[in-house]
Amino acid sequence: MRRALQVVGVGLAVLVVLIGLAIWDPVAASRVIWPVLENVVLDEPFLGITADGEIEPGLFRIEATGVSTEPIRDAAVAFLASLTPEQRGRTLFPVDDPEWRRWANIHLSTRQGVGLLEMDAAQTEAAFGLMAATLSARGFETSRDIMRLEGHLADLMDDHYQYGERRYWFTVMGEPSESGPWGWQLDGHHLIVNCFVLGDQVVLTPTFMGSEPTRADTGRFAGTAILEEELAAGLALINALDDAQRAVAIIDPDKTANNNHGELFQDNAVVPYEGLRLGELDDAQQALALRLI
């Protein structure tokens, strides 16, 4: 009994210390807590997001696309070549490394790889070159604007310790190859890009793009804004539905929490099909839905 009370006492003391640390320095607390959380979550074998907990066979096929991925490969090689041996050692992981699953779209997390904060001008240019070679022109500019808005958030919060335009980290999984599997990852607050390459096939998921705020009206990033077209398209679609359709499409009319599915550490989330089927919409509504997608 005495031993049990001692264990409980130690546990409570540790909890109090962690709570105090989290209040005093959230980033320092995250560096203590985050690795433990990661290990617990990553101990579960990867399955992937499903509708019912069962893998649907044949959903994604390995097949030639006829579109060269050489620009992405060349950009990755150039990026790795720009790094020092020590930086490269921190950035390059085996292609099947659990690092793929360690991305986190929140600011309180442990980052891997090499960050923009420590890069010189040439390395930064190479990192952005990798992004530009992988993403569409609009996707790249949206990503950069998210970074700028993160800088705006740091200015608003007067906190450049947790937030900032250059608080983003790059990792590469596997050696860039013409035929073998490899990929790269961008990890940071409100911006996640996972790029997997196999021959001429590219998979860009999971990807997360967001910001809070979504527009900077003042300061050094004034005029920067993201996702305005997507917002307008979403409103146009929901306003085009009749009352009966809207009742089915809106899963929850109240926004009382983060209703996210498939976010960080939810690799095996079960997300049942909900809402309106695309085939149930008329031609005009389908056009609006496809515009949003």
Rank of each mutant, 00 (worst) to 15 (best):
M1R: 15
V17M: 07
I19W: 11
I19L: 15
L21Y: 05
A22D: 01
A22W: 02
I23F: 06
V27G: 10
A28Y: 04
A29V: 01
V40R: 03
D43F: 05
D43T: 06
L47W: 13
L47P: 04
A51T: 15
A64P: 06
L80G: 03
L83R: 05
E86K: 09
R90N: 06
V95Q: 06
R101K: 11
W103E: 07
T110P: 02
M119L: 13
A122W: 01
A126K: 11
A127H: 01
M131K: 02
T134F: 08
T134W: 04
L135V: 14
E141G: 11
R144D: 10
M147Q: 15
R148V: 04
A154M: 08
D159F: 06
E165K: 09
R166S: 13
R167T: 13
V172N: 00
M173R: 11
G174E: 04
G183F: 13
D200C: 09
Q201W: 09
S211T: 11
T214E: 14
G223E: 09
L227P: 04
E230F: 08
L231G: 06
D242V: 02
A249N: 01
K255R: 14
N260Q: 10
L264K: 02
V270H: 09
Y273D: 12
G275K: 05
L276C: 00
G279E: 06
L281R: 00
A284E: 08
